[in-house]
Design a protein around this nucleic acid. Structure first.
Lengths: 357, 357
DNA sequence: TTGTACGCGTTATCAC
DNA sequence: GTGATAACGCGTACAA
């Protein structure tokens, strides 16, 4: 029936101490003897008895810390992110923090507005999955700088703490796998080059091909503007047009790989009989596709946890060194990759067979 | 270079008025003349000049309203929800509100804890996609009650505002479609019966079958405990075991339909040649499955917007009547449904063919 | 119409 | 060690 929330003053009254003392007693880090153990006991007892919960708003007003971390995601609809968010939330909760989530839909204007809102709300730090190369300062100039951690992105100069998959290694795995299956004419549908993942994976492609003694000509790479199925379709169409004898495509992520599927179907090519496809991220559901997608996998949930860990460290120790964490990738081989066709694709013999609707 | 945030006092000083006056001038609803137009002009000018942004924390402490709405989702990894969340966020932003997002992973304990955190943070209202039948009071008894809106759920007695698809109509569409393809032995993998969607869709199934003059025996329905692929697999296995001659399965949602795919593959049955499958929700990516899934579709983004609309109405007019909004469903026919097999499935002639790995 | 004074709930900084 | 006091930034009765 007690309708009003119980406040610190109530606790103090019950414990027979001044509110300030109660505050100290409750916020006490164990050991530092600023307040007598007896009072601590009495106050905590009173707090428990009354079911006292501090008011975070009042606390935030006073301390200018909100125990809230802003998490900015480019696209919630990308299945990559839910596990990442879960990881962030879980680790943050362990540290007593809450995530304020926002997604920008890749719209810089929207992102700017969201970041402004987050500053207003006194978020203590930011976890960004949106940062583009060339805009390392996420919050505009002149502002007091919030702690920032990048996730699934890395700053060009590694000046910001970050957690991401080892893009280069991952793509090299993919290339090596394809070569082991006999592929030689391999194309790359690259990601946006203003994203660290897009640039890193393209670098990995060139490196991996070189390691295998294969050349990469200008026509072997088509760069997507965004990580979306439609872009994958566009790029794969172009790739097939300018390199009709390609037998395998490495896509910079799974969304683009989906676009490649469509382009192959359009062209009357079967996957993997005529052309193999490899993705990146191993998103949920790609094992249910037709054909199930071979993809470079890493632990998304762990990436989220690690990002939260970094921001917590940074909040606890503002000056701590800037860490960049790379997660080890592995290749999950499924049915979208197979032996290189012997006659070569694009020859009339194999085209025009069964196609997805 | 101005490092400190500009505060109301700064604005007042520049405008040459008392802070209280500045406050009134800025919070003024147009028309009601509590403050002279001249001062309003001066104050707003000063505010713009300084780039004043009110401190939401202080305001929230004072007014006990945070302009924040808690949004609780059972499972972020379900692709149904991202568009819903987008809809909620967008509409909320138009009304000057922010969404505080949380996902419970279907864990009531976790949900309880999250709701507590949200209360602490002074959320002004709640949008819940988690409510189960039998627990209409989401926040525990005796507490001051926050405005609540349900999304993708409906309270048993319709006592709470809610937005959801018209489950009954949707399933009837599915049944009618299957019957028109010649199916007569149709099974249902039902959703959890403590969720309004699970119960409503089961009701729709019985109704739809009755309309078509078909009987529903106890063995024709298997009830899933959760909306997950693994549960769909379990239920479909059971259904196939107890009704081997079934030629079509209506799944209560797309996740369960995915489980049905697996069960059919296990049993060596081809979809749709041996057995058709219909899902519900038309999640993103189900058009990319093998085979592309026939599913009952409704506008997820619109559902989110509508839910936000309802909570905004409720915040503006606390006593307003309780609305329950049903969204019209439509059937998206893809390749997972086809004509009923003539010989009937489960006969040895067709079993044991190609199977997914 | 505007200024005065106070309180929202907490914590930081002084004294004692 | 603990109590008193002020302040975080804003909104709002009340007085003028």
């Amino acid at each position: 029936m007690a309708s009003r929330r119980v406040t610190l003053a109530d606790v103090a009254r019950l414990a027979g101490v001044h509110p300030a003392t109660a505050s100290r007693a409750l916020n006490q880090v164990d050991g530092s003897g600023l307040v007598s153990p007896a009072t601590v006991a009495r106050v905590t007892a009173a707090a428990n008895r009354l079911g006292y919960r501090p008011n975070p708003v009042a606390r935030s007003l006073r301390t200018r810390r909100s125990h809230t971390v802003g998490v900015v995601i480019p696209d919630l609809a990308n299945p990559l992110f839910p596990p990442v968010i879960r990881g962030i939330e879980d680790r943050l909760a362990e540290g007593g923090y809450v995530a304020l989530l926002a997604n920008t839909d890749d719209d810089p204007a929207r992102e700017h507005q969201l970041l402004e809102r987050m500053r207003e709300r006194h978020v203590d730090g930011l976890v960004l999955a949106t940062v583009r190369r060339g805009t390392p300062e996420p919050a505009g100039p002149g502002e007091e700088d919030l702690p920032v951690v990048l996730v699934n992105r890395v700053a060009e100069d590694r000046a910001l703490p970050a957690v991401a998959a080892d893009d280069v290694s991952g793509i090299r795995l993919a290339v090596a796998h394809l070569v082991s299956l006999g592929h030689r004419r391999i194309g790359h549908v690259a990601g946006p080059q203003d994203l660290s993942t897009g640039a890193g994976r393209l670098r990995g492609f060139r490196l991996g091909m070189a390691e295998q003694g294969l050349e990469v000509g200008p026509a072997d790479v088509v760069v997507a503007e965004r990580y979306q199925v439609a872009e994958g379709l566009r790029c794969a169409r172009q790739l097939l047009a300018q390199r009709p004898r390609v037998t395998a495509i490495v896509a910079a992520n799974d969304m683009l790989a989906l676009g490649c599927y469509r382009a192959l179907a359009e062209a009357g090519l079967a996957c993997p009989q005529d052309c193999s496809v490899v993705g990146f991220n191993d998103m949920p559901f790609v094992d249910q596709l037709s054909p199930p997608l071979t993809s470079v996998r890493f632990d998304h949930y762990a990436m989220g946890r690690e990002a939260a860990q970094l921001i917590l460290e940074r909040l606890a120790t503002p000056g701590c060194p800037t860490k960049v964490v790379y997660l080890p990738p592995e290749l999950v081989v499924r049915a979208s990759t197979g032996p290189a066709p012997r006659g070569g694709p694009g020859t009339e013999g194999r085209a025009g067979r069964r196609r997805a609707d």
